[in-house]
Design a protein around this nucleic acid. Sequence first.
RNA 1: GUGGGUAUGGUGAAGUGGUUAACACGGCGGAUUGUGGCUCCGUUAUUCAUGGGUUCGAUCCCCAUUACUCACC
Length: 370
Amino acid sequence: MAVITYELEKQCPHTGARAGTLHTPHGTFKTPMFMPVGTQATVKTLSPEELKEMGAQVILSNTYHLFLRPGADLVEEAGGLHRFMNWERGILTDSGGFQVFSLGDLRKITEEGVQFRSHIDGSRQFLSPEVATKVQEQLGADIIMAFDECIPYPADYDYAKQSTARTTRWAERCKEALQTKTQGMFGIVQGGMYKDLRERSAKELVSLDFDGYSIGGLSVGEPHDMMYEILDSTTLYLPTHKARYLMGVGTPDCLVEGVARGIDMFDCVFPTRVARNGMAMTRKGRLTVKNATFARDWGPIEDGCGCYACQKYSRAYIRHLFKAEEMFAYRLVSYHNLYFLLRFMHDMRNAILEDRFVAFREEFWEGYQS
RNA sequence: GUGGGUAUGGUGAAGUGGUUAACACGGCGGAUUGUGGCUCCGUUAUUCAUGGGUUCGAUCCCCAUUACUCACC
């Protein structure tokens, strides 16, 4: 019996949208879901209590960062990530594959794994399917990710082809390296922007029988339409009885379209990162609270929002905090953005369950300005 | 009171007798999608304290005024 299982509750008859539940050792969660990102064993600026109160279910943390600091041994000694960071709900750890490519300097990739320099102290480091799996076992997340290579965009066909093939071989090695019986593992579909490579990657990973499937290498700079097309030609080959996770996607428009294409899980730094830069997310689109036009705006970030920030503080006050570079500014907008997205996913799920997802999608696009 | 020095955008400051007056910070916009709170991009002085003069031409040279500043009494 697998530790991570997905149960399909309802599928939209007109689109690929699905509502379901995800069973994990730390609880059963509702999908489609958005997973806040807590890179260094903390969702920046927010406490676990706050995350719970806004309805966060699974959060994502990071192998790459925790491997470098404080180290997997230390987290294991602490009793695992859940105890270390005081989060009793679900945790998913990214494998480090993406970070090695986006953060590490002087990386050298071989069949064996990736050599890179730490972005913290420049020291030489090495990650491979076996190391990443071992580290993630020590971290103790409910869901661990296979070690992959995220192909940049654009990438030529030959490179994408050989990289994707290697990611598949690495996935196989991750599966073999996995020892624990209390953690599930997802494989990551790659293939760049090439449909045939996506198909092949998906089919090969499915044959390895993972607990769920991630779609990686998207939202890396390609046009949205291209991403949607590739999504369509990927989910086609994924089993319906397992969770599908679109990595790194988190703007409302992409979430709606991702859900419409049968995605169950998403994660993204977007809501929390832009929050720290003074941008709030709303149903109508982005709102740059630090803009001068809000200097004397006494209303909340978003009318009708039930979040703590909107209940208690004005745009004018939050703008002031940003101009003064006060930390509370980051907290308030991070809170709002995550609350907004979690609420948004919740609403989408209900729409699917109540057979009105198509209308939900239409209404969304009518009111949203990207 | 006497003698000297300095006056350039919101701030700190470069600069030259001759088309569009550096740069930094700040301000104002924008970017941000498997997280450095970082960063990146664009924009921001019809004008060089005020008034007069020299000159074909003055932010730059001369005079006066004003302000600030240093030294001495």
